[in-house]
Computed example of a mutant assay.
Amino acid sequence: MAQAVAQRPTFAPWTDPDAVPLIRFEAISKRFGDFVAVDQVDLSIHKGEFFSLLGASGCGKTTLLRMLAGFETPTEGRIFIDGIDMSSIPPYERPVNMMFQSYALFPHMTVEQNVAFGLKQDGLPKARIRDKVRDVLELVQMGRFGGRKPDQLSGGQRQRVALARCLAKEPKVLLLDEPLAALDRQLRERTQLELVGIQERVGITFVMVTHDQGEAMTMSSRIAVMNAGCLEQVGTPVEIYEYPGTRFVADFIGAANMFEGVVVSESRDLLVVNCPELDGEVAVAHAGAVPVGAPVTVMVRPEKIMVSPRAIPAEVVNQVQGTVADIAYLGDVSIFHVALKSGRRVEVLRTNLRHTGEQELTWDDEVTLAWHPGNALVLTR
Rank of each mutant, 00 (worst) to 15 (best):
H286R: 14
S87I: 15
A104V: 13
G83Y: 04
T210A: 12
T75M: 01
M306D: 15
A168Y: 09
Q152C: 00
I84T: 08
I81R: 04
E239P: 00
R78W: 05
M142R: 00
P171H: 02
C166V: 12
E138K: 00
V316P: 01
P17W: 13
W371C: 06
L175C: 07
L270K: 02
H372R: 06
Q7P: 01
N375R: 11
Q213I: 11
G293P: 03
V225D: 14
V140S: 10
E277T: 05
V5M: 08
A289N: 12
P91D: 15
T63G: 09
I204V: 03
A287Q: 13
L176S: 04
L54N: 01
C166M: 13
S52K: 02
L377S: 00
E260V: 08
P107W: 12
H46N: 03
I23E: 05
F206K: 05
E76W: 00
Q113W: 07
G203R: 01
L278G: 05
L369F: 12
G58Q: 04
R350K: 08
F11E: 10
I89Y: 11
V115S: 04
T210C: 05
F32E: 04
E194P: 00
E215M: 00
P373V: 08
P74D: 08
I89E: 15
F206W: 10
M258S: 02
I204A: 05
V378A: 12
G293W: 15
L64T: 08
A314K: 04
D212W: 06
A224F: 01
F145Y: 06
E347Y: 07
V38L: 04
L379M: 07
